[in-house]
Amino acid sequence: MEKKVIATTSLAGCFGCHMSFLDIDERLLDLIELVEFNKSPIDDIKRFTKPVDIGIIEGGCANSENVEVLRYFRENCKILVSLGECAIMGGLPAMRNGISIDECLAEAYLNGPTVQLNKEKILPNDEEIPMLLDRVVPCHEVVKIDYFLPGCAPRADLIWDALVAIVTGKEMDLPYEVIKFD
């Protein structure tokens, strides 16, 4: 059987889902037998070098770069999986959604109690910096997502079982107690 190609990325997330991924521990060795990694922090490949079977997305979209990367993944991956709370619902970053972006920026760069050095009241506006979205959105509100793995972070066993299921094409065993949203 030809090895499936996997890519992963973390958008507006904390990399906790990737950490949880690494928690599959020695099964990583088994996984390497089944799949080949392409663009991913796991092997530090920065660009897609071939068509990918499974793209795993951690984190939602908080800025223009997140959106671009997500769209880039959608173009290059046959299957996209939203991994974890932030990708599925926006997560902690989405807590800013109840506050206007103006207020958020003013608090962070102008008025916050920890702002002491910014005497010239500079706001980050270099064109190299990604542009902030007015609200943080989950991945499926930007592109089509095929599967969702909930959790904060999803447990390693859940990630392992899901990957094995997708790779082998066998139905996944998902008992109620495995699906946790936090």
Binding site: E68, V137, E141, K144
Partner: peptide, 28 residues
């Protein structure tokens, strides 16, 4: 999804006084 990146960044760009740029970078 109806998501519109151009619209979604207007507010923050206005606040920091920045012109939104959307060059389609070739990430490949």
């Amino acid at each position: 999804t109806g998501f519109n990146l151009e619209k979604a960044v207007v507010e923050s760009c206005n606040f920091v006084n920045r012109k939104p740029v959307f060059e389609t970078k070739n990430l490949n």
